[in-house]
């Protein structure tokens, strides 16, 4: 094992104290060390977006961060999106209802990206949704179901807020 560091961070609301190799990417740390394999690696060079997580609420590519850089930060992964084990997030529900996923591999990155985006822009146009996920590649769906799901989720979230 090469050089390591001790880090402390919050993932999905749970605090972890871990010894991590300094060259480990955040994605590998989440997947291999914490066993949170919902965050996916599709390209490891920052293009496909499958590894997108929320870092202090902002979407970021976890293949382009070192795990040590997450020291003291708050991370949310796909495992931490749903409000409870029984209940899915409205965005997750909308993905299911609108066939926003097929193989499901790009899905974690799509969900994390869109959660941030819909926070910034609760009432987006179709084009705005398409641009928001421009950094997330999907090879199965042609994006149509994803875009529909995002717009549907936006409406559900607005309704839940009574807007």
């Amino acid at each position: 094992m090469g050089e390591t560091r001790k880090i402390s961070l919050s993932v999905n609301g749970k605090t972890y104290e871990e010894e991590v190799e300094v060259r480990f990417t955040l994605a590998d740390f989440l997947r291999q060390q914490l066993g949170l394999t919902g965050t996916h690696l599709g390209c490891e060079h920052g293009v496909c977006g499958a590894c997108t997580i929320l870092l202090n609420g902002r979407s970021a590519r976890s293949c382009l961060m070192l795990a040590v850089q997450a020291d003291g930060q708050e991370i949310t992964t796909i495992e931490g999106i749903a409000p409870s084990e029984e209940e899915m997030h409205p965005l997750q529900e909308a993905f299911r209802d609108n066939h926003g996923l097929q193989c499901g591999f790009c899905t974690p990155g799509m969900l994390t990206t869109l959660i941030e985006f819909l926070g910034d822009n609760p009432d987006p146009t179709e084009q705005e949704v398409r641009e928001a996920i421009s950094g997330n590649l999907c090879r199965c769906t042609g994006y149509q179901g994803i875009v529909a799901a995002a717009l549907d989720a936006a409406q559900r979230l607005r309704e839940a807020k009574g807007v």
Binding site: T52, S59, R61, T113, E116, G135
Partner: peptide
């Protein structure tokens, strides 16, 4: 410039 995730960092 890039995408939302890359501009965040």
């Amino acid at each position: 410039v890039g995408h939302r995730q890359t501009r965040n960092r």
